[in-house]
Amino acid sequence: MKQLFNTKKNILNIYLTAGYPKLEDTVKIVKTLASNGVDMIEIGMPFSDPLADGPTIQNSSTVAINNGITIRKIFEQIAQIRQTVKIPIVMMGYYNQVLQYGANAFFERAKVVGVNGFIIPDLPLQIFQEKHQKQLEQLDLTMTFLITPQTSDARIKQIDALSTGFLYVVSSFATTGSKSALKQEQIKYFERIKALDLKNATLIGFGISNKATFDTACAYANGAIIGSAFIKALENTNDVKETTARFVKGIRA
């Protein structure tokens, strides 16, 4: 991951919900994303009560849970993906899922199957420091924290110091999947972050849905994360490979 951020600009990170639209689609979709030039993958662990996510991702999570997705299954799928796919993979999920699996076992297993890092939006900084930081360092796994337009400069610096891999820059006051163009006040916020000269790379997420918003985000950060727009594209597809390839081409065109 470090190498990716050191050598590349305009990084495209695509989020997908594991086990969606069909239980066994995860591997196909990730392979297609990678072969079409996506730089990084964020695999969502479907959760019943995803507070930070909007309706699109919650609905895809409900479908995936009903499809029978489990954390063990996701690890199996990632192991399969890793047979051919080399780009960084991070897992995104909620802390309760990690706790129920058993945090130590979860991080160890993730390492074994080839995961590079995590985004756990409801994991407090202090709990991370007390309970998980050391293990992740030992396993050489990254932890990404979020920053928002309301996060103070002082707190951004604290979050930057604790984060490894990259910082997730939440573009606006919203849950995932809200649309509309990036507004002037958001640009100001991106500029503020850029001026802080942080140690971590930054990826902008929430509201990045097409080529225009992706390009704007890339002007102010190392790249961007697209989630809900991709999940929406998968909603009614009969051919996940074709839809996935077309979606990536639309962003990278």
């Binding site: 507070l51 930070a52 407090p124 979020l146 928002t148 979050i159 006051f173 849950t175």
Partner: peptide
């Protein structure tokens, strides 16, 4: 107890 919340709620 505690506050296990995403950063968007922190403020």
């Amino acid at each position: 107890g505690g506050a296990f919340i995403p950063e968007m709620l922190y403020h």
